[in-house]
Design a protein around this nucleic acid. Sequence first.
DNA 1: CAGTGGTCTAGACCACACA
DNA 2: GTGTGGTCTAGACCACTGC
Lengths: 234, 234
Amino acid sequence: MTLTADLPRYKEVKAEILARIQKRIWRTGEVLPSEHELADEFDCARGTVNRAMRELSDDGVIERKRRAGTIVAQSRVRHARLAIPLVRSEIEATGAKYRYRLITRAAIAAPAWLRARMELAEAARVLHLQCLHLANAQAFQFEDRWINLAVVPGAAKADFSVISPNEWLINAVPFTDAEFAFHASRADKDVARMLQVADGDAVLVAERITWLERKPVTYARMSFPSSYRMVTRV
Amino acid sequence: MTLTADLPRYKEVKAEILARIQKRIWRTGEVLPSEHELADEFDCARGTVNRAMRELSDDGVIERKRRAGTIVAQSRVRHARLAIPLVRSEIEATGAKYRYRLITRAAIAAPAWLRARMELAEAARVLHLQCLHLANAQAFQFEDRWINLAVVPGAAKADFSVISPNEWLINAVPFTDAEFAFHASRADKDVARMLQVADGDAVLVAERITWLERKPVTYARMSFPSSYRMVTRV
DNA sequence: CAGTGGTCTAGACCACACA
DNA sequence: GTGTGGTCTAGACCACTGC
């Protein structure tokens, strides 16, 4: 064991295992010693080794299978934690003043593309909202939001001119699953005007679909100007 | 405790705690019962409750402090796991054939913007590489790579026409920290030509800086055509 | 000071997959 | 079968922090 600071034991073990993998003492695809053996070597309980290895497995560094043992991950897929804050928190964290504006609001029959995307029934009705989140006077995010009224009927009566759909939904509806996707796109005329950027400029688009027990709750498309950075640390 | 499937106990506990938060039985900012009390209620060991709450804390659902106890998170920041695969794996996973092409290669003095970005010394020398990753014959990712020769001298002699810098680095250098950032941008002439898209088209740019024990190893800027989706599930 | 969560221990039983 | 990791237990000590 290398000399380490005053870290918790399981972090020391984790660091040591990682170091051996990085030094190629244990090579890609190779089987690591069992938890039992490592617990003996590091002179600690198996539970401690188990926690270290579980975290490494979560990080994508190793792969574990019962009976087969633990191997150094082949795929070299690393996992990063991406923090997804509320827009308001994100803006206020920079010290800027958060402002919000509702642009449009309409309860309509769900268009075909949305029915496909959210797996909605033919006759589904949705609430369509467009709104803008500003940092000081600067456009920060344009939000194009669709809410499934079958799952969230209360949305029809909510006053989205004072609270953003984002925050209203968080307080009104729990959700069980969510899917995020990011891509780059060119701003169409509406988005460009809203974000105060040139027509056709690049925007970062984050799409999010949320379910409550398999039932689709909401679909949101959030557009950011090209100056926006989404950052994560591994 | 709700009736649940044959899940591990800690997952049942986790689900029940989450359910109570979502049902507003425990409200935002409110202090939850202590691990001890919950262990009594759920009739399990404190370690089991601890694991459930630790995971909820990792997910950003609750916040824990010694002595102060556990509260339902205020910020509503949710955390998603973003898997970052090797380009090759990502392409091959779709069934497409992976191909790689080195475009340019030059060992030069680090330009000022890069020195600032990577925190390099004035006289630092770097290896600059540009390369293309293709899925079948289709351009998938354009990689603009800078390697710090002070930390990785071996890179000067590596043959990057047969192996991508990405894969070479993974096999040659361990790293301890990495930072990712995403943004949208418009393709300049070079990038557009490489990605076979129109000049000025939107591209998704992923930047990555990697360190080995505080020493900057490499900076990479990876550009994807606007058809590319980066997906994550919460 | 007292109570919280953070960590650790030395056991234990079990599901699973391989021989 | 047999050995692996997955989980769980009933304790324990400790660091931190609010009182």
